[in-house]
Design a protein around this nucleic acid. Structure first.
Length: 259
DNA sequence: GCTCCTGTTGCTAC
DNA sequence: GGTAGCAACAGGAG
């Protein structure tokens, strides 16, 4: 459930709490959650000091002072927890025990979360990065026959947009999620590019207002369209839904279908 | 018309 | 709700 804005705030809060602390011990519940053997992870990380913790696309990235990197991808069902080592009862998907007694743990009812040691650096621009320009977005949409929502969700094109914010962004940009990407005119792509940044940055602001300590995602009431609690858009139009493979798309008739 | 090839969509298991 | 993987399907080239 956590998307970019939540992850951005988690990363800020976790960075404050764990930066410069020494990781003493790593526990993993399932071997399949990890891209290397547990022994290799331990050799690389145990005893190392955390340099910084940042958000990177839809993942959280822990950079250690020995240049080792551990990424945490919560997928759709993972949750980050901070607790004291004395309170660790269950074997979580991952437990990172830091010197001083704080533990960074990931719980996940579906065990979908994945952890990677030193993953290959992605060259795909983050949704909030400088590289996410109009020119870049246009080049990715050119001759693209996929539906625009699929393109926005594709982490190999833009990193950081999930279902909820894709719907919000497309509503603000007045583009139907079912529009064919390559058919969207340049002025609309320009609007879309600005909207991506606006919606995500605004969401970060709103979450900060709600809570400063947060490390766990909740359903956000400020979502205007991708929100089961709302029946109408701010302009009074009925919000429609369409589901495919269990995933729900929320939209209204205000959004132009380019096809 | 048909077959091969390719890209896209839909669905499932993690 | 995120991703990989694969089956099903659609459309174009030959």
């Amino acid at each position: 459930m956590p998307e970019l804005p939540d992850l951005e705030i988690f990363a800020e809060n976790l960075d404050k709490r764990f930066r410069n602390k020494v990781l003493e011990q790593v526990e993993i519940k399932l071997a399949k959650s990890l891209n290397v053997a547990l022994a290799e992870l331990k050799v690389n990380l145990e005893g190392q000091e955390l340099k910084s913790l940042t958000r990177n696309g839809l993942a959280i990235s822990l950079q250690f002072k020995n240049h080792a990197v551990l990424t945490v991808d919560l997928m759709s069902s993972g949750k980050i927890n901070v607790l004291r080592s004395s309170d660790v009862t269950a074997v979580n998907l991952i437990n990172l025990y830091f010197k001083g007694g704080d533990v960074l743990a990931v719980t996940d009812p579906k065990d979908l979360s994945v952890f990677k040691l030193n993953p290959i650096q992605a060259t795909v621009p983050d949704a909030l990065s400088k590289e996410m320009t109009f020119e870049y977005l246009s080049s990715m949409l050119l001759d693209n026959k996929k539906q625009i929502k699929k393109v926005l969700l594709d982490q190999k094109i833009i990193r950081g947009i999930g279902h909820a914010y894709a719907d919000e962004i497309l509503w603000y940009a007045e583009i139907s999620p079912f529009s064919i990407a390559g058919k969207i005119p340049a002025n609309q792509i320009k609007k879309l590019q600005k909207t991506i940044k606006y919606v995500l940055l605004d969401a970060i602001k709103q979450i900060k207002k709600l809570s400063t300590e947060q490390v766990a995602a909740e359903m956000h009431d400020f979502l205007l369209i991708h929100n089961p609690g709302k029946e109408k858009s701010p302009t009074g139009r009925v919000i429609k839904t369409r589901s495919k493979a269990g995933m729900m798309t929320y939209y209204t008739d205000e959004q132009v279908l380019w096809s």
